[in-house]
Computed example of a mutant assay.
Amino acid sequence: MESEEATMVFVYGTLKRGFPNHPLLAGAAASFAGNASTSAPASLVIGPYSVPFLLPSPRIASSGPGSHRVSGELYAVSPHALVDLDTLEGTHLGVYERRRITVLVEGGGGGREVEAEAYLANTSYAEALWLRCGGEAAEIGDYTMDHAARYVAPTHRASGLLHAIHIFIANPPTSPSP
């Protein structure tokens, strides 16, 4: 893959090495550029089907003591693989938006800042999703194998992800009966 054609992409969930959707990044379509994290605190929540959502709004991302830099990986992705990623992430359906963010790539005695593309929850539902998930209390810094163990692949879902998100947002969690 020629680097001038490549797009740097930050992944933070099911596309990481060892996670369910990583095969889309395998082979010549993408090359691993390093472990990375968001350069600023960001909100990462788990939505329906155990799908991770990095939220776009700075006013959603907390800046208090519980705020997190979200961990992930950085890849140089070919144009063909980028199309496949856009399809997986439903950018054409309004599920995610691919946006430029700044990430800190690990290495050496510190890290270096890199501009990269990342898939963020669509702004049309991001704040409602954050609130429905529990706001600041639900934010995590890393999508783990425990989260991925509950992940439901697109081929096994009862409905499309965007539909599931809207149902999830519309139905508040039930309180346990006394």
Rank of each mutant, 00 (worst) to 15 (best):
R98H: 13
D142N: 13
E106I: 02
V51E: 05
V152A: 06
A42M: 10
G66I: 12
E127I: 06
Y125I: 00
Y125N: 03
G111T: 04
R112W: 12
S57V: 04
I46G: 03
P58L: 10
L82D: 04
R59I: 15
S71C: 09
E139W: 10
P20R: 07
G90C: 04
A153M: 09
L131M: 10
S39V: 10
A116F: 08
A40R: 06
L131S: 13
E113F: 15
S43P: 08
G47N: 13
R150P: 03
H68A: 11
E115Q: 15
W130F: 06
R100N: 15
E113Y: 14
R99P: 14
A138M: 07
G94V: 02
R98I: 03
H147R: 03
T144W: 08
V70C: 02
R98N: 11
R132N: 02
L82I: 03
A137Q: 06
L74I: 02
H80D: 15
E97F: 00
S43K: 14
A29W: 04
A116L: 05
A29D: 12
E117G: 14
A149C: 09
L88H: 01
G135H: 08
A61L: 08
I60R: 10
A128E: 02
Y75C: 00
G18E: 15
V103P: 13
E113C: 10
R69V: 02
V105P: 03
A126W: 01
F32E: 09
H22Y: 11
L93T: 07
Y143A: 02
Y151C: 04
S62D: 10
A153E: 12
N122K: 15
Y49W: 10
Y125E: 00
G107E: 11
S39L: 15
I60S: 02
A29K: 09
L24G: 03
M145F: 14
D142W: 15
A118N: 04
P56H: 13
L104G: 08
G109A: 09
R59F: 14
L15G: 01
G13S: 10
